[in-house]
Amino acid sequence: MTQKSIAGRPSLVVAVALGLFESALASPSAMAGECPKDQVAADAMAPGATTPEGVTDEVLASIDLSSKGGDWKGNALRLRKLVVQPGGVVPWHAHDARPANILILEGTITEYRSSCKVPIEHKAGEVTAEFGNLAHWWKNNGKEPAVLYSADILPPMADNADTM
């Protein structure tokens, strides 16, 4: 794998990897916020906000997976940076066709998940997987911007409104 440096800085991949390694050393038991077992239920939370507010979504890299053939045709693997300002919202969306891993790099953010009766708080250094029968939305209820990195597989013909 090739690495890029911009203006003498290590690549984003290296920086993120070092940050994850540092987080793991600082708090080896840190795991993404999870729904308490007694709060898990199907259709536990109604859909929330449907439009983005106070959030920037920047695609940092994208790989067309079509060359892999078969079911990969038209799919893309992408890495995005989302910055959610205090009070900002990542709108309600589903992950049945778009798996993702989210790294919370800075700040905190609250997830309102279809399969959990209570909101889930995510903190800097945590990673959460989004896959399968999951729909949710996020809100920054904190006082500082939340910085998230999202690695996802974008299905063919995906509408940008459904890709946050």
Results as ranks from 00 to 15, higher is better:
91 P>I: 02
75 N>K: 05
93 H>Q: 06
20 L>S: 13
96 D>H: 07
124 A>S: 13
55 V>W: 05
57 D>S: 09
35 C>D: 08
44 A>I: 03
28 P>I: 00
151 A>Q: 15
155 P>T: 00
154 L>D: 13
7 A>Y: 07
159 D>Y: 07
68 K>S: 15
14 V>F: 01
57 D>C: 03
23 S>E: 05
109 I>S: 03
6 I>P: 08
140 N>A: 04
107 G>K: 03
99 P>W: 01
80 R>G: 14
43 D>I: 01
108 T>G: 06
113 R>K: 11
39 Q>Y: 02
151 A>H: 09
46 A>Y: 04
58 E>M: 11
41 A>P: 10
57 D>W: 01
76 A>F: 10
42 A>W: 01
8 G>R: 05
44 A>T: 08
13 V>S: 05
111 E>M: 11
20 L>E: 15
105 L>H: 11
118 V>G: 08
109 I>K: 04
11 S>T: 06
124 A>R: 08
157 M>C: 02
2 T>L: 05
126 E>T: 11
24 A>K: 13
126 E>I: 06
53 E>Y: 06
87 G>W: 02
153 I>A: 02
1 M>T: 04
32 A>G: 15
41 A>K: 01
64 D>S: 08
16 V>P: 05
160 N>L: 05
25 L>N: 14
134 L>Q: 09
120 I>Q: 13
114 S>A: 06
50 T>N: 13
161 A>E: 15
141 N>D: 15
125 G>P: 15
111 E>T: 12
119 P>Q: 01
94 A>I: 00
70 G>C: 03
155 P>Q: 01
56 T>N: 10
74 G>S: 09
77 L>K: 05
134 L>E: 13
20 L>K: 13
62 S>Q: 12
63 I>D: 12
79 L>E: 03
3 Q>L: 00
9 R>N: 14
14 V>L: 04
8 G>I: 08
55 V>A: 06
113 R>P: 10
94 A>N: 09
137 W>V: 02
21 F>C: 06
126 E>N: 14
89 V>Y: 05
75 N>S: 09
161 A>R: 12
139 K>R: 14
113 R>C: 07
4 K>Y: 04
142 G>I: 11
110 T>V: 12
105 L>R: 14
69 G>N: 07
116 C>H: 04
126 E>P: 14
5 S>V: 01
70 G>E: 10
119 P>M: 00
4 K>C: 04
75 N>Y: 00
65 L>G: 02
91 P>C: 03
60 L>R: 11
30 A>V: 05
104 I>N: 03
85 Q>A: 12
109 I>H: 08
128 T>M: 10
118 V>H: 02
32 A>R: 03
1 M>F: 00
28 P>M: 00
86 P>L: 00
73 K>I: 13
139 K>Q: 15
24 A>W: 10
26 A>F: 01
115 S>G: 04
83 V>A: 02
133 N>D: 14
98 R>I: 02
32 A>M: 11
158 A>E: 15
139 K>P: 10
141 N>C: 06
66 S>A: 02
102 I>S: 12
109 I>V: 15
76 A>D: 11
115 S>L: 03
55 V>F: 08
63 I>M: 08
119 P>L: 00
13 V>T: 10
39 Q>H: 06
63 I>F: 06
79 L>R: 11
69 G>P: 14
97 A>C: 09
104 I>M: 02
58 E>F: 07
123 K>P: 12
109 I>N: 08
